[in-house]
């Protein structure tokens, strides 16, 4: 139990009268690469939003290192190391990647409080931002306004912004959404190379990516986790086939 980083206990969520899930128990172990799969509407994105605090559950708790964080504001959870990306790019359109990443670093280090000191004088952070952009292959695009970047580049920036915060737990909502299979693999390869020691929970529809990169898989369906196992076991599990093929 000691190596559990993140857990939920009896998590119950509903929108109005519409139940999303009922008494969900889940745990994420240190260093795990855990995939969430399931049909559309199974509550996968809602689950991520509950963990990050953008939504509050009806009842039940979210725990980080065994501490209840259900009532903590999203910002406090980010500071505690829970960081997410979005299924649909959620970027700063008018800023360029350099500005965006520097902004993320300033927020991480608490440098973005009211002051008259120019951003230009945060040379250490600017250097770090450049390094991070290079690692993600965005070095040449550092000064291109985000809204004019190609979609695939924006997808990388989406992840780079999260990585800039040095997360302990990284929640990725369909990181390969809208990318070709090849691009999807590139994003994952890059991500795994740069995220040693980070615990990762990701939602993904592409089974190729799931079976290649996850070491645990949870299957969400009908408001519950119906299977949680290794990729190899999930692949042959009859209940999973039932959910996906509607047999």
């Amino acid at each position: 139990m000691s190596d559990t980083v993140l857990a939920t206990r009896g998590l119950h969520m509903a929108f109005g009268g519409l139940m999303v899930f009922d008494h969900l128990d889940f745990s994420l172990k240190q260093g795990e690469r855990h995939a969430i799969i399931g049909p559309n509407g199974a509550g996968k994105t809602t689950f991520v939003s509950l963990i990050t605090g953008l939504l509050r559950p009806v009842s039940g708790d979210v725990l980080l290192d065994g501490r209840v964080i259900t009532r903590d504001p999203p910002q406090a959870r980010v500071k505690a190391g829970i960081v997410r990306t979005f299924q649909i790019n959620s970027l700063f359109k008018a800023l360029n990647p350099l500005e965006s990443v520097v902004l993320a670093l300033c927020e991480r280090d608490g440098r973005a409080r009211p002051a008259l000191r120019a951003v230009a004088r945060e040379s250490a952070l600017i250097g770090e931002a450049r390094g991070l952009l290079e690692q993600f292959g965005l070095g040449a695009d550092a000064l291109t306004p985000t809204q004019t970047l190609a979609y695939g580049r924006q997808r990388l920036l989406e992840i780079a912004l999260a990585m800039a915060l040095k997360p302990r737990v990284l929640l990725l909502d369909e990181p390969a959404a809208g990318l070709s299979t090849r691009q999807g693999h590139e994003v994952f390869e890059q991500l795994l190379r740069l995220s040693a020691g980070v615990t990762i929970l990701f939602i993904e529809h592409d089974m190729g990516l799931v079976f290649r990169y996850a070491d645990q898989v949870s299957v969400f369906a009908g408001g519950a986790i119906i299977v949680q196992d290794t990729p190899d076991n999930v692949r042959v599990n009859p209940r999973v086939r039932e959910v996906y093929l509607g047999a």
Binding site: T52, L54, P74, Q75, V78, K79, V83, R84, F86, S90, L91, F92, K93, A94, L95, E99, S100, V102, L103, A104, C106, E107, R108, R111, A112, R113, P114, A115, L116, R117, A118, V119, A120, E122, L161, A162, L165
Partner: peptide, 22 residues
């Protein structure tokens, strides 16, 4: 031109993402 000014622009562009940057 301070980091706070950059943060203001960030919140103008995308407040939800700013929350997720803490």
């Amino acid at each position: 031109h301070s980091p706070f000014g950059l943060a203001l622009t960030g919140s103008r562009e995308n407040a939800r993402r700013m929350i997720m940057l803490g």
